[in-house]
Design a protein around this nucleic acid. Structure first.
Length: 850
RNA sequence: GCGGGCGUGGCGGAAUCGGUAGACGCUGCCGACUUAAAAUCGGCUUCCGUAUGGAGUGCGGGUUCGAGUCCCGCCGUCCGCACCA
């Protein structure tokens, strides 16, 4: 029905003519069309500029949750926007499908991990499709399938051949509940990251990847990641933990029969040393313990101490005087006692330290307890007294004092001097020490990538020949006892040695699942059958332009993926240093928590009007927290999508909260989004007709919105883009019919298309446009229309706003000042006085200083 | 303890370079339409004050004609690391 030109349509007319938008019907219809046409399949050989948008792939735990919806909606908006701005977009999806929960399910429910995992994938894939994400499903992969992990085994062997894989017996973190080894990164406060069980130390033969070879690269490479959050870069920097100092030897004094090597970042304070401390598991301590029961008892006592944050905080510094002594490197007559101390760690540096109590807090605590000398060697302002008072070590800058040939130097100069002397005299050398350790990748689990190695008594560890890959997991396993079923399998592990043909056994450990996620983004870009990836194709897409995921992966996954990429470059497989050019870490989806009268957590749908629905008893409303099953404050996306449609859910995920912050789920919020979807539909459905006449203010608003929304999406500031779209829609609704208004409505369809794609397609089709809006071009803006021709000038007196004036843009300072002084309000306020000073900011404000 | 982020109405938040604080949304209130309700539409919604007006961006200082924004010192809160020599 054409509107009457010039007449404003009444709300009643709108209601009559606009049909209600049936989201469920449209969602299904357009999803089917996108599928049939392969709309979102990425073409490797496209002539368009390539864009790779990736969200962290999910673990198939059962069903998708709101966090997934938020994560994938953000990526989807960017992917769709990139398509509309002329890019060939790769936006794939897959499954991080190996891991412990599948084995737990196997143990709990007696279902095979593969069956459980694949069923979850099917469920979650259907749920993702239901949200209308612009994903290239033809590239879907699951890490638990041999056609993925077989290639991973090949890469593992490539790294093995390249010298980046080694095996060593090492003390490992053993999780007694999950019955597996954990990486240091997976031990949190002395407990397993997944089970929460207190971690024990065990000696096992483990496979390691030489990530420490890349420590410098990984650290320095952070500097090139301009589009990564500073927070994540800083976390990685701290994790790698590079420090520079001096590694040097203290010569032994009889009866000690070997030198003790220490590492120090403060060689400048060497004349302040008053003791040497070694770790409880230091070889010298162990040797002493074998002869001295007191030493052995002390070492046992050190191991009893907990490793949690709280325990460490309060733990007393304990020492055991070994009776040994060492010589000071600069004075053979100066001897220092050697202690075993509970605060020295064997696995950092050399496992031994020199104690300089005046300038290190731990050393000071220790020295005070055991009445050792505390000598100041760095001046604190004018204080140079060698006798150091108080219980707070001085760690600041200053001149070196009481230090013989170092006196008068700065801290840095003295460091250099001492290192130079040590190197010249041969008792030490400048060195770099990292907190980062090599990556232990062995897991004593079934549901993971089998490590493609065969152990032969004669030949040692032999790689599985390439033609025998993939080493496929046997299906016939049982989970009735904890531990690794591969160890118990009757036949799988028995195999002839590829080298000598004798009896040999397969490695039964599987790879850490972080290995699986260290290269999946490469496999998405290129997935030939006969090799992990085709280098030239992968390099067309990589690095990932924008990677989006949770900040919980700031260290582990992102560091491992960076390492893997560099390792592949090292062995000549891929010419790329960094896998993710842009990274964005989105906030969590949160919800209020509810507790019943008797303290049980309640699901939001068990609460009605502040009372428990079932009992009518009052409910305590707790704080807003991350949605979690344990607190029962989850909202299942599926029924929400069924009720409101995909677009309303997507719109809500983008609204209000900045994407890096938490988003609180609310019933009012989703209803508001649903209302807006309906409002958009009324706008699109009711006014796709030609009108005459122009409306310049509306044109301006439109062009400002086109420019602004595009910039906001590129900056991933979706909440701002949403606000601008609300403003545009408000303006269109208020405008009189005109050609400008019709043009604005049509442009608005394109502007909202990345966010509410189903509605946009429906509207596009309704006005008879050819093709899909998903394939349409993003509207362009006229820069001339971005600026207003009139500006509102603020008039301040002494910095306080007193009046505003609307003036043509671009007036001179004199004109603006004259206009300001002519204002009635200002004349009244000044009361005949002349301002002492007048500040005019053209097109902005006038400040009159009285 | 070390490192980092954040602090703006009833709520989520906006304010691009130091220049009109509170855009936009939610909630709430009033009104229109309706027999009624829902939906929709219009208006109001930082606080104090009937009002002219005053106060106001965690607190206290400072720089500036002008500070949410910059500087100094606190407080609160969240996150990461954690005896790293």
């Amino acid at each position: 029905m054409p509107a009457t030109s010039g007449a404003r349509r009444s709300p009643a007319d709108l209601t009559i003519m606009a049909s209600r938008y049936n989201a469920l019907k449209s969602d299904a219809a357009w999803q089917a069309i996108w599928d049939e046409r392969g709309t979102f399949a990425a073409r490797d050989d496209s002539g368009k500029p390539h864009a790779y948008v990736l969200e962290m792939f999910p673990y198939p735990s059962g069903k998708i949750h709101m966090g997934h919806v938020r994560n994938y909606t953000m990526g989807d908006v960017l992917a769709r926007y990139r398509r509309m701005t002329g890019h060939e977009v790769l936006h794939p999806m897959g499954w991080d499908a190996f891991g412990m929960p599948a084995e737990n399910a196997a143990m709990d429910k007696g279902v095979h991990p593969g069956t459980w995992t694949r069923a979850n994938i099917a469920t979650m894939k259907a749920q993702l499709k239901r949200l209308g994400f612009a994903l290239d499903w033809s590239r879907e992969l699951a890490t638990c399938e041999p056609d993925y992990y077989g290639h991973e085994q090949a890469l593992f062997l490539d790294l093995f051949a390249g010298g980046l894989v080694y095996r060593k017996e090492s003390s490992v973190n053993w999780d007694p509940v999950d019955m597996t080894v954990l990486a240091n990164e997976q031990v949190i406060d002395g407990k397993g990251w997944r089970s929460g069980a207190t971690v024990e130390k065990r000696k096992l033969n483990q496979w390691f990847l030489k990530i420490t070879d890349f420590a410098d690269e990984l650290l320095d490479g952070l500097g090139d990641l301009a589009h990564w959050p500073d927070k994540v870069k800083l976390m990685q920097e701290n994790w790698i933990g590079r420090s520079r100092g001096l590694t040097f030897r203290f010569a032994p004094v009889v009866p000690l029969d070997q030198p003790i090597e220490v590492y120090s970042t403060r060689p400048d304070t060497i004349f302040g040393a008053s003791f040497v401390a070694i770790a409880a598991d230091h070889p010298v301590a162990q040797e002493l313990a074998s002869r001295d029961p007191d030493a052995a008892a002390f070492i046992e006592r050190c191991k009893e101490g907990g490793t949690t944050a709280a325990e460490l905080e309060t733990q007393e510094k304990l020492g055991f005087d070994t009776g040994y002594a060492v010589q000071h490197p600069f004075d053979a007559d100066w001897t220092l006692p050697v202690y075993i101390a509970n605060f020295v760690l064997m696995d950092y540096g050399t496992g031994a330290v020199m104690g300089v109590p005046a300038h290190d807090q731990r050393d000071l605590d220790f020295a005070r307890k055991y009445a050792l000398d505390v000598t100041r060697v760095v001046a604190e302002g004018d204080t140079v007294d060698p006798v150091f008072a108080g219980d707070t070590a001085y760690t600041g800058p200053g001149r070196i004092v009481n230090s013989r040939f170092l006196d008068g130097l700065s801290v840095d100069e003295a460091k250099g001097q001492v290192i130079a002397r040590a190197e010249a005299e041969g008792w030490g050398s400048g060195s770099t020490v990292y907190r980062l350790r090599d990556w232990g990748v062995s897991r004593q689990r079934y549901w993971g990538t089998p490590i493609p190695i065969i152990h032969c008594d004669a030949c040692g560890a032999v790689p599985v020949p390439r033609e025998q890959l993939p080493v496929v997991l046997p299906e016939d396993v049982s989970f009735d006892i904890p531990g690794n079923p591969l160890d118990r399998h009757p036949t799988w592990r028995h195999i002839p040695c590829p080298s000598c043909g004798g009896d040999a056994a397969r490695e039964t450990d599987t790879l850490d699942t972080f290995v699986d996620s260290s290269w999946y983004f490469i496999r998405f870009a290129s997935q030939p059958d006969d090799k992990p990836f085709d280098r030239s194709v992968a390099e067309k897409w990589l690095p990932v332009g924008q990677y989006i995921g949770g900040v919980e992966h700031a260290i582990l996954h992102l560091l491992y993926a960076r390492f893997w990429t560099r390792a592949l470059r090292h062995i000549g497989k891929l010419d790329m240093a960094e896998p993710f050019a842009g990274l964005f870490t989105q906030g969590m989806v949160t919800h209020a928590t509810f507790r019943s009268d008797d303290g049980r957590w309640l699901n939001p749908d068990e609460v009605t009007d502040g009372k428990e629905t079932a009992t009518g008893l009052p409910v305590t409303i707790g704080r807003v927290e991350k949605m979690s099953k344990s607190k029962k404050n989850t909202v299942d996306p599926e029924p929400i999508v069924d009720q409101y449609g995909a677009d309303a859910v997507r719109w809500f995920m983008l609204s209000d909260s900045p994407p890096e912050r938490d988003l609180e789920w609310s019933e009012n919020g989703i209803e508001g989004s649903w209302r807006f979807v309906q409002r958009l539909w009324r706008l699109f459905d009711g006014d796709a007709v030609g009108e005459a006449g122009s409306d310049v203010p509306l044109d301006r608003k439109l062009h400002q919105t086109i420019a602004g929304v595009g910039a906001d999406i590129e900056a991933l500031q979706f909440n701002k883009a949403v606000a601008k779209l609300y403003e545009l829609v408000n303006a269109i609704e208020r405008a009189q019919p005109s050609a400008s208004r019709t043009a604005a409505i049509r442009a608005a369809m394109l502007l909202v298309a990345p966010m509410v794609p189903h509605l946009a397609e429906e509207a596009w089709a309704a006005i008879g446009r050819e093709g899909l809006i998903a394939d349409a071009d993003w509207p362009t803006f006229d820069p001339a229309l971005l600026v207003e021709d009139e500006v509102t000038i603020a008039i301040q007196v002494n910095g306080k706003l007193r009046d505003t004036l609307v003036l043509p843009k671009g007036q001179s300072k004199a004109e603006i000042e004259a206009a300001a002084l002519a204002s009635d309000k200002i004349v009244r306020l000044l009361d005949g006085q002349t301002p002492r000073k007048v500040i005019v900011v053209p097109d902005r404000l006038v400040n009159l200083v009285a």
